[in-house]
Amino acid sequence: MTNQPSKITTLWFACLSMLGFLATDMYLPAFETIRADFNTSQSLIGLTLSIFLLGMALGQLIYGPLSDRIGRIKVLMGGMTLFSIASVLCAFAPNVEMMLLARFAQALGACSATVIWQAVVIDRYEGKVSERVFATIMPLVALSPALAPLAGAMLEGQFGWRSIFVALVGFGAVLAIMTLKEPESANLDKKQEKITVQLRQDYRQILSSKKFIGNMIIFAACSAAFFSYLTGSPFVMSAMGYSGADIGLSYAPQTVAFIVGGYGCRMLLNKYDSQQLLPWILKLFVGSVTVMFLISMNTEPKTIWPILIPFCFLAVANGAIYPIIISKALEDFKNCSATAAGLLNFLQTMVCFAASGLVSAFAMYGLMTVTTAMFITGFLALIGYAFVVKARNELALQTA
């Protein structure tokens, strides 16, 4: 296994990790324009995000085991092809029903990138190196919530909202070219069991791990809080009188915060063990969602700032948490790294889908819906941490 990824490989990891976020974030400033163009409801437009999350979740259950059997590169190329075709369909969708179908297909393609870059990191790198790679890539991922809405708002203003999806076709093509230049990392020489037998063995191994379950729940809770905000904030800000460009700009502060959290975590990992850092980061996450909930309960903000400021602290927490929990969740499954990554992301994304769907269904209640969903994720994160502590204590007893 290599010690450190090259700059080109790091860029490839970053682009793969950004793909799903770009497909969710670029069109957020155009929500109201798309709603008016299709003459439909806010709930159905919000559902275009929720259905994307569902497709991301389901596809990862397929791509993970498939890439463990036939290789990362072949599967990723298939995913990029599907993503590009679906993006074309989104660009030319005549109504919201076609948009929903195309978004689902687009998600099925995009999720191949999410599963495979994480599996390749686990394939190629060990322990602290793996954590540092994740801590390098995750802050770069944070650029998408800032740059993607700004780019989307610019494209919408100059060429209309459909140009956003044309741009995504181009990004998918660039990723396909980069993928062809990377070597295969899966161990394809190992003996292959019948796929149903292999999946049963792998899933039994993964789901019996309290360490995996605990880190997965934390990952899901933190991500669900983020997607609750992404789903509801465009409508909340529109109701406050903000324009699409303003909505795009509002994602810049939280992106800076996420980057600060990610690179802060990277530096702290040089001095402290990740299990020392995790409880403090979780306190920041739970505190942030609690403050946002209390603000919406007791006041009626006229601007987004009373909510955006604590959300930035949440973004710092997420930026620091993600590298730790993803690496810890997957590190014990090098024999089936893509299957484990697919299951991790499936379960995480299903929780995000539920949170996003809840916010979409109750969009008429505005900010209260968003912050209530986020507050619930705080309790979910604490449950996950309880599993992590229990797994750690059991391991300590076994090695004592």
Rank of each mutant, 00 (worst) to 15 (best):
237 M>P: 03
276 Q>C: 05
351 V>D: 04
319 G>C: 00
234 P>N: 03
282 L>E: 03
308 L>A: 13
243 S>I: 10
249 L>Y: 14
254 Q>H: 01
310 P>L: 02
275 Q>K: 14
348 Q>L: 04
332 D>F: 04
253 P>L: 15
288 S>W: 05
227 F>Q: 08
303 T>P: 05
269 L>A: 00
318 N>E: 05
335 N>G: 15
315 A>C: 12
228 S>Y: 07
346 F>D: 08
263 Y>C: 03
225 A>N: 11
255 T>L: 03
316 V>T: 06
340 A>F: 01
341 A>S: 15
302 K>E: 14
308 L>P: 01
306 P>L: 09
342 G>F: 10
280 W>N: 13
291 V>M: 05
226 F>A: 07
334 K>Q: 00
319 G>K: 08
274 S>F: 06
245 A>V: 14
258 F>M: 09
322 Y>W: 01
318 N>D: 00
230 L>K: 00
304 I>N: 06
331 E>K: 15
324 I>A: 07
246 D>H: 04
265 C>F: 00
327 S>N: 02
314 L>R: 01
328 K>N: 14
250 S>K: 12
242 Y>V: 10
261 G>F: 09
315 A>S: 11
248 G>E: 01
274 S>A: 12
255 T>S: 15
291 V>Q: 02
279 P>C: 00
274 S>E: 13
243 S>M: 11
329 A>H: 04
349 T>I: 09
321 I>Q: 04
261 G>S: 03
320 A>H: 11
303 T>W: 03
298 N>A: 05
342 G>R: 06
284 L>M: 12
248 G>L: 06
303 T>V: 04
247 I>S: 04
247 I>W: 03
329 A>N: 06
252 A>M: 12
290 T>W: 03
245 A>M: 15
